[in-house]
């Protein structure tokens, strides 16, 4: 494997151009890497490191802090069942137990066919639809045992392809507007307007 493919490399470069300091692109590029490979493979971490000017270890060290960044392969569909307080009160734990039985894996595990990874999630801010879950960060809820089974069957049969992209694809809306002014230009403009204001003030006072 050899890092970003040409299309992804172009998108990655565009993302880098959005920030005054390129290291800020690190996490967005990790998402992009997951979009290409489904997870953060070593070669992609190396390329991200090169692009944002840090070592591969720093990319790994940063990525390992975040729940959504996976340095090992995960299933095509990441099923995250929320069990935090609002969902707990509405049966989130029972739903997670059902999910374990239905998928045959414990939280953190991936089904043998590589289709599903199950996660015990913290609050996803969908509490008015508790118990709630996300599949690849797309919301579902309230979910009961029956609708969970249906959801899994639909995903397995490919009936939700449009709604739920494969794991890794997070933002399907690519920014079209380039950065209009560099920070240097902003500062230069500001210096000009400050000078103009000072000049006007001086004129008024004299």
């Amino acid at each position: 494997m050899s890092g970003f493919n040409p299309e992804m490399r172009t998108r990655a470069e565009k993302i880098c151009s959005l920030y005054p300091q390129v290291r800020s692109a690190l996490i967005p590029l990790c998402h992009l890497a997951q979009e290409q490979a489904g997870y953060l493979s070593e070669d992609l971490m190396e390329e991200i490191a090169e692009m944002v000017g840090v070592t591969p270890a720093e990319v790994y060290g940063t990525a390992s802090f975040y729940d959504m960044l996976h340095t090992e392969p995960v299933g095509k569909y990441l099923v995250g069942v929320c069990t935090n307080i609002a969902c707990l009160l509405q049966g989130g734990e029972e739903l997670l137990e059902h999910a374990e039985a239905k998928l045959g894996v414990a939280p953190g595990g991936t089904t043998e066919d590589g289709m599903f990874t199950l996660e015990d999630m913290e609050c996803i801010a969908h509490c008015n639809k508790a118990p709630a879950l996300q599949v690849n960060y797309r919301f579902f809820g309230p979910v009961d045992e029956e609708s969970f089974d249906e959801l899994v069957d639909d995903l397995r049969a490919g009936r939700l392809v449009g709604d739920v992209p494969s794991h890794g694809t997070l933002i399907r809306e690519e920014r079209s507007a380039p950065i209009a002014l560099s920070i240097d230009e902003v500062l230069a403009e500001r210096a000009l307007s400050d000078a103009a204001i000072a000049q006007r003030k001086a004129q008024v006072q004299s």
Binding site: S24, P28, H31, L69, E122, A180
Partner: peptide, 13 residues
């Protein structure tokens, strides 16, 4: 003039 950038987090309370 202003540029505005939306930035994604990655899962950390």
């Amino acid at each position: 003039s202003l540029d505005l950038v939306v930035h994604p987090g990655a899962g950390a309370y």
